[in-house]
Design a protein around this nucleic acid. Structure first.
Length: 592
RNA sequence: GGUCCCAUAGCUCAGCUGGAUAGAGCACAGGUUUUCUAAACCUGCGGCCAUUGGUUCGAAUCCAAUUGGGAUCACCA
């Protein structure tokens, strides 16, 4: 039983004894004691003055006296207005500290919950390389998956690959026409970059064709439909759908280039997947489900035989599910794919879809439709919606060339890390050092993105945004490296339990209190699907440790008991930092 | 036009289900090293929490309206 639960039930009992009435447990509200007052935990007593029929001060005094008499953990208390500040005994903190020290991954859920969660992330199109927006997606999805694991769930990381459609045909067509047989090998380009190059090439030709047609008197809309390039691309898509051998072979070849390219990027990002879903294999799914729904009158037909769902009662619109020619639309596929996943993994307890906030409406509709179709599990589907990454110049637009390429960005981060290291006189020129620069650069990038609340959009300034000092990944890495350095010197430290009668300094207690919060933070990060909570917590911990480190000797402490305690405090802090960074996908170097 | 999201220091962000004098980092001005990593630590500067009402003992937080920004609403994906 943790401290807050203990306090809570004691307060309930106390109020009942004091005033003969049970308080609403939900109104018992704990908060950190403001640093201007003495105490560790503060209870706001205003909600209970109605029961006590006494002044806030008197009520707080009554409850405080009761707690002090009945709970060994409560050593003392003081009252400021309606705030009851409790001083928790240092023996409680030290007992907790010993327990945490003896736990391998303190804060992680020790037991398996038996739940299996599927986390979908990345989900790229196969016609162009990954960019900054994908990076946010990938880092979030990966980290959420790891956090869920730390909370005791089984996790399946999956990726949906949008490998079919008009977009890929555009690249294919352009390559066929103007590629001269160029391959990743002959061009020296990464596969995804090469295919992306032809996507841009297509767009260039398409645009000039439109301009020409408009000059010849067509409207813009007509020109966009009649331009030879797009007509050809559409013809190619039909051939693909008919499994034309030649088109299919081209499609397979170009996709294989893209996958090889993506693998490099995923590797650099340090992420992986347990299962891949290819749209080319799932795009025909869902149609049967829609027809079943039609039979059950969940859906209806409109003129022209198209099939619709009416969501106006839910405050949304009508949505088309099958075109009048009977073919599926995008959401139809998603219906099919969701069902497919539950068929693949019947014991799934939920699916987390990591998809940008632009698709909020889409997922609302999708989950509603699944519910209407009678799938109970639909309520366990969660859209992890994340905001766009904006640039100082505004939105990223591939047409305007303002897209920040994922590979370029990572490389730039690593180079910057190297430059800064050399500037600080810490750099060397060997393989180990190169690996360290990579770790630092990637930490700066990952932390910068993950520390922001997922659902908020964020601004990315390539020149200024990524820093290495202050509230950053490298700062936390540095704290870890510093801890490791200290521990390397402490060759003979033995892990003996700390006596609960040891007197501890305020700064030491602050550290223990922060560590005490860790399990709650980790749990909440999992429940809220928010790595940002963990990222911000671990910064606080690193900062607190740095202050402690600065102010007090560890190895040079002469009192053996204190030295032992401080060493173990250092060990535990280092472990929590390392574990947390790992959950964020960030490596913790031993030296830097 | 309908729906949804957002607005906190010059900049980038915290601020959990309402609680004490709203916090960090960057930037700016200074300081700390004969002692465990100065990628650190400390001090200062910086705020009408977009505006206006409401609920409450108490509002950055909840509600409503307004303003400004963004997203979305296709027989596209």
């Amino acid at each position: 039983m943790n401290l807050e639960d203990k306090l809570k039930s004691a307060i309930v009992d106390g109020i009942e004894k004091l005033y003969n009435q049970k308080p609403d447990e939900k109104r018992i509200n704990f908060q950190k004691t403001s640093k201007d007052f003495e105490g560790d935990v503060t209870i706001v007593v205003f909600p209970f003055t109605g029961i006590s029929k006494k002044s806030p001060e008197q009520t707080a005094k009554d409850i405080g006296t009761y707690l002090k008499e009945n709970l060994t953990e409560v050593e003392n208390f003081n009252v400021v207005k309606g705030f009851l500040n409790l001083v928790i005994s240092s023996s409680f903190w030290l007992d907790f500290f010993n327990t945490a020290s003896a736990t391998e991954h303190f804060g992680f859920s020790p037991a398996n919950t038996g739940k299996t969660m599927m986390v979908e992330y990345a989900s790229p199109n196969t016609n162009k390389p990954l960019h900054l927006g994908h990076i946010r997606n990938i880092l979030l999805g990966y980290s959420v998956a790891e956090i869920l694991k730390a909370n005791g769930h089984k996790v399946l990381k999956v990726q949906v690959i949008n490998d079919r459609g008009i977009h890929i045909c555009k690249s294919m067509l352009a390559w066929q026409k103007w590629g001269n047989g160029e391959t990743p090998e002959t061009s020296g380009l990464k596969g995804d970059k090469l295919v992306g190059k032809y996507y841009v090439e297509f767009d260039k030709h398409y645009k000039s064709e439109i301009a020409e047609l408009v000059a010849n008197g067509l409207t813009k809309e007509e020109a966009e439909k009649q331009a030879p390039s797009i007509v050809e691309a559409q013809a190619m898509l039909l051939k693909w759908e008919a499994k034309d051998p030649e088109v299919y072979a081209l499609w397979e070849m170009m996709n294989s280039w893209v996958y090889a390219g993506f693998d490099v990027t995923y590797n650099s990002l340090g992420v992986n997947f347990d299962k891949l879903y290819y749209e080319s294999q799932t795009w025909l799914r869902g149609k049967d489900e829609v027809l079943k729904g039609l039979d059950q009158s969940i859906f209806y037909r409109k003129e022209g035989q198209s099939v619709w769902v009416d969501l106006t009662k839910e405050g949304l619109d009508e949505k088309v599910l099958l075109r009048s020619d009977g073919t599926a639309v995008y959401i139809t596929q998603d219906i099919g794919t969701a069902i497919l996943r539950y068929n693949d993994f019947p014991d799934l307890s939920g699916i987390v879809y990591t998809v940008a906030t632009e698709q909020d409406y889409h997922f609302k509709v999708l989950f509603l439709i699944l519910q209407k179709l009678g799938f109970e599990w639909a309520k366990n589907c969660y859209h992890l919606s994340y905001g766009m990454v904006d640039l100082p110049s505004g939105k990223m637009k591939s047409r305007e060339g303002t897209v920040v390429d994922a590979d370029d960005l990572m490389e730039e981060m690593i180079t910057t890390a190297k430059e800064i290291s050399l500037e600080k006189g810490k750099g060397e020129d060997n393989a180990d050092a190169e690996e360290l620069y990579r770790m630092i650069g990637m930490a700066a990038l990952k932390y910068f993105i993950l520390k922001v609340d997922p659902k908020k959009k964020m601004l990315f300034n390539p020149q200024e945004s990524i820093d290495i000092n202050g509230h950053t990944g490298p700062f936390i890495q540095y704290t870890h490296a510093r801890i490791k350095s200290l521990l390397r010197r402490a060759d003979s430290h033995s892990a003996t339990a700390v006596s609960s009668t040891l007197s501890i300094l305020p700064k030491e207690k602050e550290l223990i209190k922060l560590i005490h919060q860790f399990s709650a933070v980790l749990k909440e990060a999992g429940e809220a699907y928010s790595p940002a909570l963990l990222a911000n917590y671990i910064y606080e911990l690193a900062k607190e440790y740095n202050q402690f480190y600065h102010d007090f000797p560890v190895l040079k402490e002469e009192d053996e008991a204190k030295k032992n305690f401080r060493l173990q405090l250092t060990v535990l802090t280092g472990r929590i930092i390392k574990d947390s960074l790992r959950l964020l996908g960030i490596q913790a170097p031993e030296k830097m």
